[in-house]
Every structure is written in structure tokens, then in C-alpha cells.
Amino acid sequence: MTQTQPGSVQFTGVVKKYGDVTALKKLDLMIEPGKLVTLLGPSGCGKTTTLRLIAGLEMATDGTIHIGGQDVTHLTATYRKVSMVFQSYALFPHMTVRENVAYGLTVKAVPKAEAAQRAEAGLELVGLAGYGERLPSELSGGQQQRVAVARAIVLEPEVLLLDEPLSNLDAKLRRHVREEIRQIQQRLGLTAVYVTHDQEEAMAVSDDIIVMNNAEIAQIGTPAALYETPSSSFIADFIGDANLADCDVLEVEDGMAKVVLNGNTYSVPSHRPLSGAARIVLRPHALKLMSPQSAGVQGEVTYAAYLGKEMQYTVETNIGSLFVISPVSGQPFAQGDAVSVAIDQDQARLVSQ
């Protein structure tokens, strides 16, 4: 199966309004060809609106949209070289799997024999060779989702759009199918834009993540960059689990900040100039529970859960409630135990208040 050259996606000053409601504020965005970029954020943040604007299912109120260098701002979905994989799969129950995959090709008046051949190639690509004569009802949820991916890919789009594609699958199957989608995208060199509200899913599949909040971009970066160097309290709390506590920054020098937290002084990495009141980001794995006689933040365990390879704790302290994850070793702490929480200073981060 041939593959169209992957296209870039560029938004310049794009605004989307529904009457008096602004669904998307002035948005400037560039997605490079061949990248899988995820739009991530809470409900109502603008991520699905952004995807629909790329697809041509919505028209921009203001600004311009380019796909593969072509201005498509005023073109409907029919005239854009994009394909979408929907949350609901949207397979025709009365058609065979091969007919479902070939459907978009037949609509585009591709000869029947060629459409069938390309459909078979698409099914082979997603690991469903030999399934062409089955009906969708004879497939598992994961297999149906792969059929939906094959149907989108055979149209040879410049950009593949995926709208919450795994939300109807159970946790174990989601993990398996997201790996397959990522492998297909990398193998074909597709430009893909993926929408999800699941942070783990976004981090697992993405080259870059665009975190959105309140109808605008909050931060763009690789999964590692967003986790390691959040630009705000919102990003720190949204990307992975995080404990946030107020602190005071005394000075920043050579990328290290001297901060006062709970009367104790710590030296933590700082990637931006800060002074005075700030917030310290403490990841659950960066905290360690010790005996109450040890140095650290004093507290009491109010929740303890054994999860096989790890223990999860909630500890009430005078800097707030802390979520702590520890490997299982020795005798775990129990609810009601007095503890001291030690902080791994190298893993702590700072954000503005």
C-alpha cells in the first residue's frame, strides 16, 4: 500500500466561537510532518474543537489553518486530505470487515478491485489479515478499533486524526491497542493528531503533547519535558501525580534554587527565575516514609494500600496531604502510624504560585 507524504498542520491566530461562547481562544500551533502529537486536557478545554477544526468538521471563526502547506481554512472535510478514527468505531454492522475498510475508497469512486486490494493491505497492516469476510459483530472491541484504523489509513491521508480512540476498551486492551497504533504510525511515518483525556495514554504514544486548559494552550512539550519541567501548578498536577506545597525561594544560582519549606531549607533544581513565594512540586516517588525520629516533614499515615509491587500512602502533614508511593520492602507502615517524610531534593521542581 502506498502512503501519501505526511503533512504538517499549522494554526495561525485561530479562534472558534459559538455565539457568545469562545470554545477556542487565539491559537498558534505547528505540528511537524511525521509526528504523533496528542491534544490533552480536561473536559471543555478545547482539544476536541481543535481536532474538528483540523478535520474540517468545524469552521474557524477567525485565523487560518494550513495542512501540508495548503490553506484549508474554508474547505470542508471532503476536500481535506485527512482521515479520522472515531471513539465509537462507526463500523457498518451489515458490511463485512473488508467492505467497511474499503467503504471510503468506494465513495471516492476507486475501482472495486483496487478498493478490495487496498482494504486487504490495510487489514494486513493492522494485524487482521484473513478477517475480511467476518462481520464487525464477530470481532472483539480491540479488533473493531483496528478495523477503524485500517479504514482511515487506506485513504492515504496527509494527517490521521484519532478522537479518544481507546475509551471504549478495558485497561489491558487499551494498553495493547495504543502500542499497535503507535507502531503503525511510526512504520508509515504518518502525521497523527490524537485526542485523549488520559495522561498515561498521552505519555505512552506521543512525540509531543499539547496540554490545553480554558480554551488555550497551557504548555507544549515531550512527555518527559512536561513531567520533569512543568511550567505551572496546573501542568504539574495534570501530568502525573503531584503534591504541591507553598514554599519561599531565597535565591536561584546555576540552575539550583534554595527554598524554605516547613522551616527547613532545601536545594532543588530550578529551570526558570523565581523569587519569593512559589510552589514546590513533589512527585509521589520522590518522597520516602521514615520513622518519626528521622529528619523531614512530620505526619501521620491516614491511608495505606498494598498494590503488589508498591505501597500507596496518604500522609497528613502541616504542609498538606501528601500522596506517597513506595516499593514494598520490610514491614509497611499502617494507618495511624506517625512518620517523617523525606524529600528527594533532586527530583523536586518549582513552579510559580
Rank of each mutant, 00 (worst) to 15 (best):
Glu251Phe: 04
Ala305Met: 15
Ile209Trp: 08
Asp254Asn: 12
Gln185Asn: 05
Asp241Ser: 14
Ala236Cys: 00
Gln183Met: 00
Arg118Ser: 04
Lys258Pro: 08
Gly7Leu: 04
Gly68Glu: 08
Ala116Gly: 12
Gln87Arg: 10
Asp237Met: 06
Arg118Lys: 11
Gln219Gly: 01
Ile31Thr: 13
Asp237Lys: 09
Asp246Leu: 15
Gly63Pro: 05
Ala115Cys: 02
Val85Met: 00
Arg349Ile: 03
Lys288Met: 07
Gln144Cys: 12
Ala338Trp: 10
Ala338Glu: 13
Leu57Ile: 06
Gly296Pro: 04
Ser329Ala: 14
Lys258Gly: 12
Asp71Asn: 08
Val301Thr: 05
Pro269Ala: 04
Phe238Glu: 09
Ser43Val: 06
Tyr103Cys: 07
Val147Asn: 03
Lys112Gln: 14
Val351Thr: 08
Val259Cys: 05
Thr50Cys: 04
Glu138Ile: 15
Phe333His: 15
Tyr194Asp: 10
Gly330Ala: 08
Leu322Ser: 11
Asp170Trp: 06
Thr12Ile: 15
Ser88Gly: 09
Thr48Arg: 07
Gln144Trp: 09
Gln199Ser: 08
Glu133Asn: 13
Leu282Gly: 08
Asp20Trp: 07
Met256Ile: 15
Met1Lys: 05
Ala348Cys: 02
Asp198Asn: 10
Leu160Pro: 00
Leu289Phe: 14
Leu307Glu: 05
Ala152Leu: 10
Leu36Gly: 11
Ile181His: 01
Ala90Asp: 03
Gln219Cys: 08
Leu261Gln: 08
Ser88Asn: 14
Gln10His: 07
Tyr89Arg: 04
Gly330Asp: 10
Arg175Gly: 12
Gly19Cys: 08
Pro165Asp: 08
Asp71Lys: 07
Asp248Arg: 15
Ala55Gly: 14
Val252Ser: 07
Ala109Val: 09
Tyr303Arg: 14
Gly104Gln: 10
Lys288Val: 14
Val339Ile: 09
Gln293Pro: 09
Leu244Lys: 06
Val324Ile: 10
Asp20Lys: 05
Met311His: 06
Thr314Asp: 12
Gly44Tyr: 00
Leu125Thr: 00
Val21Arg: 11
Ala129Leu: 12
Pro332Glu: 09
Gly276Lys: 03
Met311Arg: 10
Glu124Asp: 14
Glu201Ala: 00
Ile217Ala: 09
Leu287Phe: 12
Gly19Lys: 05
Leu39Cys: 01
Ala192Pro: 01
Ser321His: 15
Asp28Val: 09
Asp337His: 10
Phe11Leu: 06
Thr50Phe: 03
Pro165Phe: 02
Ala334Gln: 15
Ala60Asp: 01
Gly132Tyr: 13
